[in-house]
Amino acid sequence: MTQIIKARALAKSYRGVRALDGVNLDIEAGRIVGLIGPNGAGKTTALKAILGLTHFEGELTVMGKNPYTERDSLMRDVCFIADVAVLPRWLRVHQALDFVAAVQPRFDRSRAEGFLSKTDIKSTSRVRELSKGMVTQLHLALILAIDARLLVLDEPTLGLDLLFRRQFYDTLVNDYFDKERTILVTTHQVEEIENLLTDVLFIQRGRIVLSTSVEDLGARYVQLTASTEQARLARQLQPFYEREVFGRVALFFDGRAPEELQQFGEIRTPSIADLFVAKMQGEAA
C-alpha cells in the first residue's frame, strides 16, 4: 500500500493554544477517511497543514512532500474543497474552466463540461448569480475533473439542502472514487457519510483519539441495548459510555467479545455517529 499522508508529532499553536497536539497519522491510498471531531478539535487546522496552508511543527509529508514548502507542486496531485463557496463571486463559469485548464495539467475540461451539462448552470453565468447549491456543483465539477490522487473535503456540504448533499456524495463515490485515489473528509453530518467511509479518525483537543478502519471498528466496539436490570449486570464488564434510550440503556464496550454480552440484551456494531458521541462524552466524563 502506498502511503499518502504521514504525520508524526504534528503540532500547531495559535497564540499559545494548542490546536494540534502531537498528531500521528498514516493514511494509505484507496481509502475514504473521515476526520471527525467536535468544533475546535483541530480538524480544520490538520487539513490546513496537510494542504500546505499553514506552518506546523513536527513531521508531515503528503505524498512524500512537505506541504508547506512544496504546496504548488503538491497541488498537481491534490485537490481540495475547503469549506463551501470560496469561488470568487466575479468569476464566470467559462473563465473558471479556462483558468483551471491552463494551470492544472491533470484537468480534463470535457469531463467538467459533462458534469455541468447535467446541471442548470450556464457557462456565461457569474458565480454571484448562482445559488449556493449551484456554486457547490460548479466547484465539484471542477474538482472531480482533476485526476488527483488525494481529495480533501472540509465541510463540503455545509449549508446545502438534503437533495444536494445526497447528490454530492453520490457523485463522489460513483463518478470519482477508485482504488487509486484517497479521500479525506470532515463533516458534522456524520450520518450522511458513514456508509462511504473505509476509515475513521476521531480528533479531540488536538489529538487523535481513535484511528481505525471501519472493519476493525466492528471487531472492537460493541453496543449493547439492555433493560435497566440487565444493564446493572453488564456494567461489571466496564462499558466506557452509556446512555438511556426510551427506558432502555445503551452501553458501549471496547474490546469485549459479542458472546460475552449477548446474554444481557441486543448487541450490534455502533454507528459511527453513536460511537463518536460515546467516545467524546466518555472521554469527557
Partner: peptide, 20 residues
C-alpha cells in the same frame, strides 16, 4: 480582496505558487 471573499482558498487549491 482574495482574502476578504475567501477565494484565496480556491486559488491555493491549484498548482500555482505564491511567487507566480
Amino acid at each position: 480582496a482574495e482574502r476578504k471573499d475567501r477565494s484565496i482558498l480556491f486559488w491555493k487549491s491549484l498548482p500555482v505558487s505564491d511567487a507566480q
